[in-house]
């Protein structure tokens, strides 16, 4: 068995995950095993969608040609690989969907966000896949900022203060689309680093400079690619607007609704938006605006001192 830390959890796994951080502990929060999964979920409170069924405590997803995943009670993931499936794909969909289900089941919020350290906390960059989260964090890293988390940050109340919302990192791997390498000037990844065969997205590990301590959130930037202008722009968001933007950026919001977590989310996100400024950065989709966006971010960070 392999022992890891990931998403704030102590994980014991039957299969190896190079993505997670190796760890030592006695009692696991989450067990990942291989085995047969149920054919279907039953129960009045189960929502059935396309190859996925969701109840408040169980999640069953059948990823075509990859694996079937059964997730229960925030403590267990069972994997039934499909014939011919490759290990990278099996891990990728576990790290995205099944892990999101675990986090929702455990009453935490997986937010679609990357983050860097700033002052005594972190600054989050939210947005859908392709919005530029990982690219921005990679560019900031090249300028000396330290990466906190990529793609997903877990939100939860601080242990000693339920009104303070802190962020927990996911795991020490960045995921970059092929064009991000040229945009940020870093060396192109190798063929082995593809997240799955034939997908133009690559892994970049940073286990050596990774820390797992939860951090307070100092500021949030929402990234979108809807700008009709040829350059990037920034605007501070009103609290209602930032509330709904954060809710939309909940990773797998379909799960949030199906698991009946809306009230819980409302509570956490309200506390966050009440305490933290949220800015929207809009950029045109097909123009390289990395330097402009970095300048906008740096001139709008909470000032030191």
């Amino acid at each position: 068995m392999f022992k890891y830390w990931g998403f704030g959890l102590q994980i014991i796994s039957e299969i190896e995950f190079p993505e997670f951080l190796p760890a030592e502990f006695e009692k696991p929060d989450l067990t990942i095993s291989m085995g047969n999964v149920p054919e279907t979920l039953t129960g009045d409170d189960t929502i059935h969608k396309v190859r996925v069924s969701i109840s408040p405590t169980e999640y069953l997803q059948k990823v075509i040609n990859v694996a079937h995943y059964y997730v229960a009670n925030g403590t267990e993931i069972r994997i039934e690989p499909q014939p011919g499936a490759d290990e990278k794909s099996i891990r990728l969909f576990l790290l995205s969907n099944a892990m999101a289900a675990i986090l929702h089941q455990r009453n935490t919020i997986p937010l679609h966000a990357s983050a860097v350290y700033h002052q005594d906390g972190v600054v989050l960059f939210c947005g859908h896949s392709g919005a530029g989260k990982s690219t921005i964090v990679t560019a900031l890293q090249a300028k000396g900022y330290k990466v906190f988390s990529d793609d997903v940050c877990v939100l939860k109340p601080a242990e000693d203060n339920e009104n303070l919302i802190v962020s927990v990192p996911s795991y020490p791997m960045m995921k970059l689309w092929v064009d991000s390498f040229a945009k940020t000037g870093i060396t192109m990844a190798g063929e082995d680093d593809r997240l799955r065969p034939n997908l133009a997205k690559y892994a970049r590990f940073y286990h050596d400079e990774y820390e797992i301590i939860p951090r307070p959130i100092k500021q949030v930037f929402m990234l979108d690619t809807n700008s009709l202008e040829q350059q990037a722009g920034i605007k501070k968001m009103a609290s209602i607007e930032s509330f709904s933007a954060l809710q939309r950026n909940t990773y797998r919001h379909v799960q949030m609704n199906a698991m009946k977590k809306r009230d819980f989310h409302f509570n956490i996100v309200s506390k966050l938006t009440a305490a933290v400024p949220v800015y929207r950065i809009s950029r045109p989709q097909h123009v390289n605006t990395v330097n402009e966006v970095i300048a906008l971010i740096e001139s709008n960070l909470p000032s030191n001192g």
Binding site: K49, N97, V254
Partner: peptide
């Protein structure tokens, strides 16, 4: 994505097309 709870950016186009009728 709403019908499948997938992050479809991880899927190949041929996989997406396999699921379209069900979606």
């Amino acid at each position: 994505d709403d019908a499948t709870d997938m992050d479809s950016t991880y899927l190949l186009d041929s996989e997406v097309k396999l699921l379209m009728p069900e979606v």
